[in-house]
């Protein structure tokens, strides 16, 4: 929004902190997967939860959703709801065959 002087500028520090958190979560996931391979410790659910935390950090800070108008949050919520709906319908379909 170039016509707006009070636009929010993310700080370098915030981007760096986001990066550090993402790297930490990545190495945690890899460590559990590689060193716990025999135990099959990394379940699909755990991996997906960690991935979703990472994705949220990317969206929130890197993609600036945190500071943007609410419409972006609403639209993102709509897309995620749509995807969840597809996923539930597909699961019900497969489970009832």
């Amino acid at each position: 929004m170039s016509d707006n002087n009070n636009v929010h500028i993310s700080s370098y520090k915030e981007h760096f902190s986001t990066w550090a958190a993402l790297i930490l979560l990545t190495f945690m996931t890899v460590a559990v997967s590689v060193f716990g391979a025999e135990l099959r410790t990394l379940s699909v659910a755990t991996a997906m939860i960690i991935a979703t935390v990472k994705a949220t950090a990317v969206g929130y800070y890197f993609m600036h959703i945190k500071y943007d108008p609410k419409i972006y949050k609403w639209m993102m919520g709509t897309v995620l709801a749509l995807f969840t709906f597809f996923m539930i319908m597909l699961t019900i379909d497969y489970l009832t065959r």
């Binding site: 997967s33 990394l42 991996a47 997906m48 960690i50 990472k54």
Partner: peptide, 12 residues
């Protein structure tokens, strides 16, 4: 990639 990586490489 955040989703592709664990799904293909990590989940054992």
């Amino acid at each position: 990639w955040i989703y592709l990586f664990p799904l293909f490489y990590l989940i054992h």
